[in-house]
Nucleic acid binder design. Structure first.
Lengths: 124, 124
DNA sequence: GTTACTGTATTAGCAGCTTAAGACACCAAT
DNA sequence: ATTGGTGTCTTAAGCTGCTAATACAGTAAC
């Protein structure tokens, strides 16, 4: 799974979001070693400074623990991870309702649309 | 309904989106006079140049017609408006599925989550 | 003709994001 | 002791977005 960057938003914010997703979905297993700044910067094709800024946010979320000279480790508190994952899903869903409301669809109509569209295979 | 601006994205893009939403939902009725650049800039609290940039996008969408010195008019093609509204709704729904997929939810689980969350009243 | 309102264009300056190129302190392995 | 890998910090440069202030051309009302 590559990093997907679009130009309209700050890169470091997009990287933070996608790193968060990788962690809560187990792409970087709980308790395991987290990749180095320079390594992920190379993978994403961005400057190490930019990746550094993205990573520093993960600490605030308590998703990683930083040992100044030893690298980072993914948290091993699986309850925190699962709770964060559910919370992010709820936020996305509320954003969806909010966007649909701006288009004139109430919550029931929005949910119905999701039910209808889920069948249409938009496989990448 | 006020304009809602967040700092992380270009203001003119956010304004364009919200103007589009207003038009397709009939907040500015089909065929009616569209507000002036300086007027909407004042309402949104942004520079006229920024609002100008946002409005110029609406012309590409054929949602407004610009008469160089007479102001702008909302299109009277209601079929275009309704089709655009449905298209925007489908796009939002697909974005929702995409975001949820990144969190480990397939399309069925995402739709189910929308069904479950739609009852919770998050009234503003 | 004068006034007031349109959209549009120009110039300048400021702030934030990103990159580039380093440098430093700390730790582990050899 | 040396080497290599950590996170972190600094400085400079370039780009884009946004604001501010101003100007211009066309139209309508009087």
């Amino acid at each position: 799974m590559d990093f997907k960057i679009q130009s309209s938003r700050p890169i470091w914010q997009q990287l933070t979001e996608q790193l968060r997703q990788r962690i809560v979905t187990g792409a970087y297993p709980p308790g395991s070693r987290f990749p180095a700044v320079r390594e992920l910067a190379s993978e994403a094709g961005v400057n190490p400074n930019t990746m550094q800024r993205a990573m520093s946010q993960l600490e605030t979320d308590e998703l990683v623990i930083t040992n100044r000279t030893l690298g980072r480790t993914v948290t091993d508190k699986t309850e925190v991870l699962e709770e964060m994952r559910k919370q992010m899903a709820r936020e996305r869903t509320e954003e969806f309702f909010g966007d649909m409301k701006a288009l004139g669809y109430d919550r029931a109509e929005a949910a119905e649309m999701a039910q209808r569209e889920k069948e249409n295979d938009h496989g990448d």
